[in-house]
Amino acid sequence: MAISVGLNCPACGGAIQVAEGDNVLNCGYCGSLLWAEGDAGVMTVAYRNVQGRDSVLRATEQWWRKGWKARDLREKGKLLECYPIYLPFWSTTTRVAGWICGYEERRHTDREGNVRTERIPMEEMVLNDYRYTSIACDPGDLGIRYLRNVGGEASFADFESIPTFESTTSKDEMIATSKQRALEEARGDANVPHITFERVIAIPKGISRIYYPVWVVRYSYGERMYMATVDGVTGNVLSGRAPGDPLYQSLAVTAGTSIGGLIAAGGLAFGLGAGEGLLALIGLVVGGAVLALTYRFFRHGSEIVEGDFEGKAADMRGKLMKEARRTFRGFHT
């Protein structure tokens, strides 16, 4: 087992702060310039947990009152246990640079009804950094897949006291997925409908492993056991399951059937009356959509689920969270 030292200045022994993605550091005590080398190029950073048991339980109780959760959850919900864990995340920065050229077609109809197609040439530059995060293990039923917060104090101080989830997914897959996602997104940003020439490169700028503190709360409602997770830095509820309320379910479907039905009736009546078949159809479709939306809640609203519970960690494609997008930072500002 290879062992390496860290986290005290090798020149003066003072404690040093390591920020994510920064290889070059300054010692705050002796001013030495320091170089951090990750294992196989991966920097590791942990965030300091600033929440306590009480604030986490309070956040959960407040969360109970929000949304369409059971009205009696406040009285019947019993907080059972609450503990912090460190979850591993991959965080990547990918720079995309290039040009996408092509054209857009616009149709013009003149007075005689002739359709003329105009080609408008386009050249779009893309130059952006994209940052993605994704959980680095199977989150199981925690309902967390991305890192939503990027602020906070980096510190390894709690590492001894908080159980740490091992990072077990592949960093190379994360880099490859980020590259692909960044290219797709850059293409979307350029928005050239017909591409005749494209030269775009994606440069991985770095990958870090971030250990992020998350509190797991388990609570009961009757005989059932539910859970919620709370961000150990911001104190916000990240994900959770909660009992729903039949009253809200039936209100939803009552509203959906009445509004949806009347929209459909309005569309039919006006559309057919004016001889506009299209209007009638639009009315039916919109009315049906309102119905479908409320039906979903009616059918599945007995359990309220918040967070990223579907899919699996290995199926990261298309599920990376775009954390923040920055263009290049200016140096002389």
Binding site: V18, S32, L33
Partner: peptide
């Protein structure tokens, strides 16, 4: 992760 002092 390893932190080293930068030396010429």
């Amino acid at each position: 992760m390893r932190v080293v002092q930068v030396k010429c």
